[in-house]
Every structure is written in structure tokens, then in C-alpha cells.
């Protein structure tokens, strides 16, 4: 019961955003996909969807933290790529893990310090770090390949504690984030910063420090997604993360989290990620061209953001 209540927002919380809209959307999309592609509802395909969606859920959860403060993290995609590249380096396991964590913390710190202390706009800051990190990933691993340690593959494929590993890792990410967002003072302060940074400062919220922490967390979640993905594809690939920048923002926005900050929910982000995953999987099953899928994803983000804007300007 205690865990369950930790997962739910505090009662009568109305800064969660309209996450139920994405739930309705998801139901409709699942129905449509299931109807037009009978393969969709087979257990094999469903576990495939879960495995595909997991890295997106993890990345989008980190992205949610950032977006609640009114920021944006475009660098998560390249960081995922860099993590997979680090994983296949010829290093002892502990050294590799430490290096991955160090890389994530460094990227997050640089992003956060640039944004919070040097007042660089989040888009510019993370666009720049996205490019730098992408470059470093390509230098580390110019062509896909390498060997992923067995313990990583083991932890993400098949099942853990009798449950599909994908679901276990989603649950771990959700529980950590739910605790941070809904039960700690850090979480409350994230919403306060997103609501009005100046007022937050006046009330003793350490705005700058919290923003830096948020970007570090976002990077760490992306790193986690990188581990998962490396285990799945069994190789290091400096381009594997590219789609996650746009996809994670789309998922968060679909989940009702306001891109101007202060409003958002975890449940929305999870559902939004699943929706993005189901749409992708459904289009694959229906043989929609991969390039057209990119077009559709962009249009989806545009549609969601327009709806949000429309509400803000009161039409």
C-alpha cells in the first residue's frame, strides 16, 4: 500500500496535466492497430513492444524531470549512444560502469551549469552538448560492433524474478522517479521552479542547484537506457540513441506534461512512451516505411505542442 501510494501523485493534485488524454489515445491506437494488424496482440509481439519501449520510458522519465522545471534535454540521445560505445570498450566491468557514470554526470553537470549559472537557453546548451557527445561517441566507436558483457545482456533479456526483464526495469525507473517527484522536497521544488523560478528563489528554493541536479538525473536515466539498449542489440553503436532525443520529448509532451514547465506527471510520461512505441510497432507491422514513420512522429509532436499552446493562449 505504501509503495502504491508513493506511485500516485498526492491527492487532488492538479498539476499532473491531462494525462488521461494519452490513456484514451492509447486505447484507441491499440484497438486500431490490433484490428488492422492481427499479429500485434500475439505474446511474442507484445514482449517485443515492451522491450522496444523500455529504453524510451527510461529516457523519457529523466526528460520529464527536466521538462517539469521548464527545461529541455536534447543531449539524451547522444548520451545513450556514448554509453553503448563505452560498454563495449575493452575494460574491466567496474571500470566500464564507473566510466559510463562519470560520462553521464559530466554531461549533466555541464548542461546544468550552463543553463542554471551561465543562463544559456536549454535548447542551445543541450544542442551543443548533443553535438559534442555525439562526436565523442563516434570517435570511441566509429562503426557498430564490440562485445557487450554477458551480465548486461542477461539482465535485460528474458525474465527477472519471473517477470519479463523489460517490465522490471521500467518498474525500477518509475519507482525511483516517483519517489523523487512525489515524495521528496527535491520533487516539490522541481514543480516550484517550473511554476515560477523567481518566486521559488524568494521562497528559499535553491533553484540553480536543483536545475543542475535535474540535468544530471536526466543524463543518468539516459545512461540507464543506454545499458538496456546495449544489452538488447548486443553491440556498441554510436548512432543507436539518435532517435531518443525527439522521441523522449514527444512522449513527455504526449503525456500531458507542459513544455513550459510546472505541470506534468510520471504516469503520463509512461503512457506517452508506450503510445510512441505502439505507434512505431504498429506501423512496422503494417509495413509503413521507416522514413514515413519519422515524418509521422514529427507531426505527432507538432500536434501535441499545438494543443498545449492553444490551451495556454486560451482558445
Amino acid at each position: 500500500m505504501a509503495t502504491l501510494s508513493a506511485l500516485l501523485p498526492p491527492p487532488r493534485n492538479s498539476r499532473a496535466g491531462p494525462w488521461y488524454l494519452v490513456l484514451a489515445c492509447l486505447v484507441i491506437v491499440v484497438a486500431v492497430v490490433a484490428w488492422s494488424a492481427p499479429l500485434f496482440l500475439t505474446p511474442g509481439n507484445l514482449s517485443n513492444v515492451a522491450a522496444q519501449v523500455t529504453p524510451l520510458v527510461i529516457t523519457a522519465i529523466g526528460q520529464t524531470l527536466v521538462i517539469i522545471t521548464g527545461g529541455l534535454d536534447l543531449s539524451v540521445g547522444s548520451l545513450i549512444s556514448l554509453t553503448t560505445a563505452i560498454i563495449v570498450l575493452d575494460l574491466p566491468g567496474w571500470a566500464m560502469v564507473l566510466l559510463a557514470i562519470a560520462a553521464a554526470v559530466t554531461v549533466g553537470t555541464v548542461n546544468g551549469v550552463g543553463i542554471a549559472f551561465l543562463n544559456v537557453h536549454p535548447i542551445i546548451m543541450t544542442l551543443a552538448s548533443m553535438s559534442v557527445v555525439q562526436g565523442v561517441a563516434l570517435i570511441t566507436r566509429p562503426v557498430p560492433g564490440g562485445t557487450v558483457p554477458g551480465w548486461i545482456s542477461g539482465a535485460v533479456n528474458g525474465s527477472l524474478f519471473g517477470l519479463p526483464a523489460a517490465l522490471v526495469w521500467i518498474a525500477v525507473a518509475v519507482v525511483i522517479a516517483a519517489f523523487l517527484i512525489y515524495r521528496t522536497r527535491f520533487g516539490l521544488h522541481l514543480f516550484a521552479i517550473g511554476g515560477n523560478p523567481n518566486s521559488a528563489l524568494m521562497n528559499g528554493v535553491r533553484v540553480q542547484r536543483n536545475i543542475v541536479l535535474t540535468y544530471i538525473l536526466s543524463s543518468l536515466f539516459a545512461m540507464g537506457a543506454g545499458f538496456y539498449l546495449a544489452g538488447r542489440i548486443a553491440s556498441g553503436d554510436a548512432n543507436v540513441g539518435t532517435v531518443f532525443g525527439l522521441d523522449s520529448i514527444t512522449a513527455v509532451a504526449l503525456g500531458g506534461t507542459s513544455l513550459s514547465g510546472g505541470v506534468g506527471s510520471l504516469v503520463g510520461t509512461v503512457l506517452g512512451s508506450v503510445l510512441v512505441g505502439v505507434i512505431g510497432n504498429g506501423m512496422n507491422l503494417m509495413n509503413v516505411s521507416a522514413f514515413l514513420q519519422i515524418v509521422i512522429k514529427g507531426a505527432l509532436l507538432l500536434a501535441v505542442v499545438s494543443v498545449q499552446r492553444r490551451k495556454q493562449i486560451g482558445l
Binding site: P10, L188, N203, V205
Partner: peptide
């Protein structure tokens, strides 16, 4: 200095 997306109770104890 109140923040619109916090509850009244949270605002009173913010910080």
C-alpha cells in the same frame, strides 16, 4: 511570491 501550480499547503511550507 506564490507559485500557481503548488497547493496552498505546499506554498505555505515551501522551502
Amino acid at each position: 511570491t506564490l507559485i500557481p501550480n503548488l497547493t496552498v499547503a505546499e506554498s505555505i511550507f515551501l522551502g
